[in-house]
Amino acid sequence: MNTVKKTATRALMYFVELFVIVLSVFPILWVMMSAFKTNGEILSDPLALPTAFSMDAFVYLFETYNFPLYFWNSLLAAGVSTLVSLLFYAMGAYVIAKFQFPGRQLLFILFTITLLVPGHSKTQPIFSLVTGLGLYDSIWGVTLVYLSAGMAMSIFVLKAGFMAIPKSLDEAAAIEGAGFVRTFWSINLPLAKSALATAGILMFLGNWNEYYFASLLTMSDSQRTLPIALAFFTSEFSYNYTNLFAALTVVILPGIILYAFAQEQVQASVAATGIKG
């Protein structure tokens, strides 16, 4: 009886794993495969493998567009904004999670409701702010806007993370004479690694993929980010599927590769906090 139950549980677990893997990987593999097919092949049989691995679409993309630069811009805007805002929000979330002070609830509510402001409603004020600072058509203007993007989510996740750290540790630190900043920096921050990683990843991905403000606030080719490049291939009266799939691949792949590299780090930090308990 027990072994049947165990086998069933095991089978269920493997099924869930398989389901997750197929659903996550298959659509992307299909897009990448299609980028090597001709327009006609895509139309005639969606499942067939490409007959000849034609790189033409990719050659065209890289000859016409400066993808390495777009990649660099995306990395810069998303990376810098994530690092800076992660520090900001960690500080904010830390005091909200651990201290009682006047205005605590109000601030927490104000920070979380930022999640509810529709993006399109922010267009005009943000545009005027960025042009006012002279940052129109600059990747730094985009970076600045991204600072604000993950506020609610990060405060949420980080607050939960800091709350999970036993108060006894802070008290012990206080007894040993650690000041406010040191208690935060050397005790709490390392122990909130998993929450920091989660918030950081979420913010980075959101900014990495952001299209609307990046497209609105930049104009020159030299300030362009990856998602904007994709929009060129979906414009009115374009119909070249091969180029579209190739562009999708070129825009998607760097993110996945980046993730593949960072993934080890992410897992290590999550695992480290796991063991601590």
């Binding site: 497209s215 104009m219 020159s220 080719d221 904007i228 414009s235």
Partner: peptide, 12 residues
């Protein structure tokens, strides 16, 4: 010329 995607051009 600065090339921009048509999508969002009028918005800008």
């Amino acid at each position: 010329l600065e090339s921009l995607p048509q999508d969002g051009f009028n918005d800008r």
